[in-house]
Design a binder for these strands. Structure first.
Length: 479
DNA sequence: TGAAATGTTGGGGCG
DNA sequence: ACGCCCCAACATTTC
């Protein structure tokens, strides 16, 4: 009579509709996690994500234990096979989960649902990962949106997301627990010990996520509009990996922000930039659901013929943070060391790859996928296609970031550069964003030999910009 | 959620 | 006092 709760990208007890539904029934609850990476095809989690997943599962297991429950972990080529085994071992008659929206997950879940029902199992799925289901938001003509502003306006006009559900206090145990593999047996942790940087920057788990949200609201929410673009400050929430793994749900964030703002008489919170960022997350999932080819194919078909360059050495220089443009290199090194990059810098680094180096956005998307702890197929796809100008509501082809002026504008005191590109630390602020143009005496003084202690710029931005305009002009403009 | 190129304005130095 | 030039500051256009 037990209910299987299939945890996936919802590694939390609070505001977990599937878990709440299972707990509400007068029946034992069997929480399970199934590691079936092959079912995610070419978008299996990268090394940084796997590290996070390991930590997060550990926290979830502890949380469940505190409720008198247990997490049964299985690795399997096919989730369906593992579910059937778990059903057999636990005598469960019902399976519940919260929906995922990636194309591979949608296909798989549909098949699993049908197969289990044919087995005579009761199956239900719930929405908990988004404020609005992707199919619930439509243009007047019934189509999915392709422009953010009208999309989000439409969302805001819908009924408010419901209040988050409380975490169950206790979960009924089954007569016998289905055995669990060890977490270690999933081999999620990296072989090399490079994860210290990530561990120093982040603490996975829903407790840390909620602490971070409270801290953000108290310390940074009011100034978010002005400080969110300054990578040298602590102006953003850094909730992205927690959101990706579902350690905290968007409804919890939405309502916590509402309560915080209303308590202080701030009634414009709905239109705050922070809430708008939740909107972009929704929009990304909306697009991925309705345009499932976009992780590998440009949404705008004309870009399929774009003459991207092939230049492995340039790609390598970009990946490793050795382009000679400090703001780009700082971002790429922050990514490599912490599994995260400030959003403003993501745009700058992405623009550099796509426009200055004329390398395909999909190469950048893949690198981010492998290295980000918050790697999310929907957000990553939207972000890269946006920068490349080949996606929905994309940046126009002529919008090309100048890595020097962007650095000067958003990191005026060079704090971000000094943190991640320490070899430039001795440069005065005047030159820290363009060592390639600094007078020899200044470089001397700072102990820098261009080409040795720090790379010379791998391209001349002014030249690269003109080449990009030329190439994009041919294929990019909307018709 | 750009930036460069081009155009306009207005104050100050100077003959 | 006046016109001229220079150029910074700002605005507009273009890619």
């Amino acid at each position: 009579m037990a209910t299987l709760v299939w945890f996936r990208r919802d590694l939390r007890l609070a505001d977990n509709p599937a878990l709440a539904a299972a707990a509400a029934a007068d029946a034992p609850v069997v929480p399970v996690y199934i590691h079936a990476p092959d079912e995610e095809a070419e978008w299996q989690p990268g090394a940084a994500s796997r590290w996070w997943l390991h930590q997060s599962l550990e926290r979830l297991r502890a949380k469940l234990r505190a409720c008198g429950s247990q997490l049964s972990i299985r690795a399997s080529a096919h989730a369906l096979a593992a579910l059937r085994a778990l059903i057999r071992e636990s005598g469960a008659t019902r399976v519940v989960w919260n929906r995922c929206y990636e194309p591979a997950a949608v296909t798989r879940d549909r098949a699993v649902k049908q197969a289990l029902r044919e087995d005579g199992i009761e199956v239900a799925s719930y929405g908990g990962a988004l404020l609005h289901e992707p199919w619930a938001v439509r243009t007047r003509g019934g189509d999915p949106f392709q422009v953010f502003t009208p999309y989000w306006r439409q969302c805001q006009s819908l009924e408010d997301p419901s209040e988050p559900l409380p975490a169950p206090r206790a979960l009924r145990a089954p007569a016998a627990w289905p055995p669990s593999q060890t977490l270690a047996s999933l081999e999620l942790l990296p072989k090399l010990r490079w994860s210290e940087g990530i561990a120093a920057a982040f603490t996975p788990g829903s407790d840390a996520a909620h602490a971070k949200l409270e801290h953000f609201l108290a310390e940074a929410f009011d100034e978010y509009g002005s400080r969110r673009d300054q990578p040298g400050t602590d102006g953003t929430s850094r909730l992205s990996p927690h959101l990706h793994f579902g350690e905290i749900g968007p409804r919890e964030i939405w309502h916590a922000t509402r309560r915080f703002a209303e308590h202080r008489g701030r009634h414009s919170w709905r239109d705050s930039q922070f809430i708008t960022e939740l909107g972009w997350r929704e929009f990304a999932h909306h697009l991925l659901y309705h345009f499932p080819n976009t992780p590998s194919q440009p949404l705008r078909a004309s870009f399929a013929q774009f003459p991207w360059r092939a230049d492995p050495r340039a790609l390598e220089a970009w990946s490793r943070g050795m382009t000679g443009y400090p703001i780009v290199d700082a971002g790429m090194r922050e990514l490599w060391h912490t599994g995260w990059m400030h959003n403003r810098v993501r745009m700058i680094a992405a623009s550099f790859l796509v426009k200055d180096l004329l390398l395909s956005w999909s190469l950048g998307a893949r690198w981010f996928w492998d290295t980000l702890v918050d790697a999310d197929l929907a957000a990553n796809t939207l972000g890269w296609q946006w920068v490349a100008g080949c996606g929905a509501d994309a940046a126009p082809f002529f919008r090309i970031f100048n890595p020097v002026s962007q650095g000067q504008r958003f990191d005026p005191d060079g704090r971000y550069i000094r943190r991640w590109v320490p070899e430039l630390g001795g440069l005065p602020n005047r030159w820290i964003h363009e060592p390639g143009a600094a007078p020899p005496s200044v470089l001397d003084e700072a102990g820098i030999t261009l080409g040795k202690s720090y790379p010379s710029p791998i391209v001349d931005h002014a030249v690269a910009r003109r080449a990009a305009l030329e190439a994009f002009k041919r294929i990019g403009p909307r018709r």
